[in-house]
């Protein structure tokens, strides 16, 4: 699936980044000639081992690093363009937050940086805190939050501006299974709303679950790119899932396959429930029975302002940008 070049939200061509030492001698080649395109409404995964160049790519897209050579455009403009950033949400690889602020204060601060009007800011903060399950802890300093709770606030701050392009660097790191599941649900929901997501992750299962296309990096070079189906489908075999079969039925199927061309059953198994589903079931049950927790609770689904169901007044609310 090759996109028409003008429609890509993000486009890099021959992107190269070399980190230099104090004497300006090349020290590390972090990225080598990367061509990448992120289309509207797609979830694009960046996969790679440690030091493969994933975070460097993201920082180049955001204009936080400068390329050694090559080009980057974001919404058709250079990455340093300040106004373009109104359309971007970014979650860094760790939740770098101001520990002296509480959840409400920090979201309000970030909302102000987007010039969101006061009422919009307040309603979005409430919705986001509900979404990430931290409404009950909104007045506690972030320094007292656990790593997972900080991650949830990090996700909330990345969404405060209802971005068209969401860049998530290792979003599920530090999150419990409920949080990780909610992030994946969120990404899928945002895709339904027509937004693009660039997801960098070590967790292969996360990438596989939500990404439309993936780019695999190793040593700063692109090793593979394509849709999940293109890269992962295995046309040499077929899997059929059905209710449990007895030994007699299996023997009859085997015979049928043999008649059909000398095929045989290579593997049969009775799949068990995944640990993730088992755990989520237990937590949901405890929540229903009213068990108390001093930590994060399950979120209440995607914040309304991120969806097409958002209130009319918010759709029409102009940013204070014009006043500037």
């Amino acid at each position: 699936m090759k996109p028409p070049p003008d429609t890509a939200f993000v486009k890099t061509a021959g992107l190269k980044k070399i980190f230099k030492d104090f004497w300006l001698r090349p020290k590390v080649v972090a990225l080598e000639g990367l061509d990448l395109e992120i289309l509207p409404g797609e979830v694009h995964g960046l996969l790679g081992s440690n030091g493969a160049g994933k975070s460097t790519t993201i920082k180049l897209i955001l204009g936080l690093l400068f390329p050694t050579s090559g080009e980057v455009t974001v919404f058709g403009k250079p990455p340093g363009d300040v106004e373009t950033k109104n359309r971007i949400g970014y979650l860094p690889e760790e939740s770098y937050l101001y520990g002296f602020l509480d959840a409400e204060e920090i979201l309000d601060y970030y909302g102000r940086l987007f010039n969101l009007p006061g009422p919009t800011r307040r309603s979005r903060i409430a919705e986001l805190l509900d979404m990430v399950g931290l409404q009950g802890m909104r007045n506690r300093p972030l320094a007292e939050y656990s790593k997972g709770m900080q991650r949830r606030i990090g996700i909330a701050q990345a969404l405060i501006n209802n971005p068209d392009l969401l860049i998530l660097d290792e979003p599920t790191t530090g999150l419990d299974p409920i949080g990780a599941r909610e992030v994946k649900d969120l990404i899928l929901r945002l895709r339904e709303e027509g937004k693009s997501v660039l997801l960098s992750s070590h967790r292969l299962a996360d990438v596989e679950d939500v990404c439309d296309r993936i780019t695999v990096l190793y040593g700063g070079c692109k090793q593979a790119e394509g849709t999940i189906d293109e890269l992962l489908s295995s046309p040499e075999s077929t899997v059929i899932e059905t209710d449990r079969l007895d030994a007699d039925t299996l023997a009859r199927i085997e015979a049928l396959l043999k008649d059909a061309g000398g095929l045989s059953i290579r593997k049969t198994e009775s799949p068990r429930q995944s640990l993730e589903n088992f755990f989520l079931g237990l937590v949901e049950k405890a929540g229903r029975e009213g068990a108390e927790t001093s930590g994060a609770t399950g979120g209440t689904g995607v914040a309304r302002f991120l969806t097409r169901e958002r209130p009319a007044e918010e759709k029409d609310a102009p940013a204070e940008e014009a006043a500037d």
Binding site: V82, K85, Y90
Partner: peptide, 14 residues
């Protein structure tokens, strides 16, 4: 050093 600047300069702040 604390990298909080990443969350600021990735927003529309020159």
């Amino acid at each position: 050093d604390s990298k909080t600047i990443l969350t600021i300069l990735s927003k529309p702040v020159g």
